[in-house]
């Protein structure tokens, strides 16, 4: 499968952005800067989804992750951190054990990826130009039960988050 030079340049640029920003998310010492780099990671990932012919997923990625999730985390940080933001995102004492376990995971992933015959798996067909129609039809026919369960899950998460984060004392004062 031949790819144009633009696709190659786009892939390497987006991959470098994603990995660099994700590394900064982990290594920044200020949690607000971490969330900023997280937003950059998410937007670059939306570009990667566009290069994978998944335009609907790219739109959802920008809306849900870069929009909702990042804003929600920043608001959560603003509620939680009361002192200054410096030194709010440090490493714990298990950094060497964590690095070792991560290296082990990478090694096992590399071993199993090397044993997989990727070339035989690849299909000859191309992705249809209009993906949204097909995804919508599949979500409401073949995958309708998971779709409804996901709606229920979101409702339960919404109610659960409100119940957990609500301050009972504030609520009692409001009643008086």
């Amino acid at each position: 499968m031949e790819t144009s030079i633009y696709a190659v340049v786009a892939f390497y640029g987006l991959a470098a952005t994603i990995l660099g920003a994700a590394t900064m998310v982990v290594f920044m010492r200020n949690i607000v800067h971490s969330v900023l780099f997280l937003a950059i990671t998410f937007i670059a990932m939306a570009g990667l989804f566009l290069s994978l012919d998944a335009d609907f997923i790219a739109a959802v990625q920008v809306l849900v992750y870069a929009g909702a999730v990042c804003i929600m985390i920043v608001l959560g940080i603003m509620v939680i951190q009361r002192t200054d933001m410096n030194e709010t995102n440090l490493f714990n004492k298990q950094i060497m054990a964590g690095a070792g376990l991560t290296a082990l995971t990478v090694a096992f992933g590399a071993i199993f990826a090397g044993r997989t015959a990727w070339v035989e798996l690849v299909a000859a067909d191309a992705v249809p130009a209009n993906t949204v129609d097909a995804i919508g039809a599949l979500l409401l026919s073949k995958y309708v039960i998971p779709f409804e369960v996901a709606a229920l899950l979101l409702l339960v998460a919404l109610v659960g988050a409100i119940v957990l984060a609500r301050d009972e004392e504030v609520q009692a004062n409001a009643d008086n």
């Binding site: 982990v26 709010t88 995102n89 440090l90 490493f91 714990n92 964590g98 991560t102």
Partner: peptide, 13 residues
């Protein structure tokens, strides 16, 4: 995934 795993294991916040 490994970058994320490293962060999950080693971050304090």
């Amino acid at each position: 995934f490994s970058i994320g795993l490293f962060g999950v294991l080693t971050k304090r916040n």
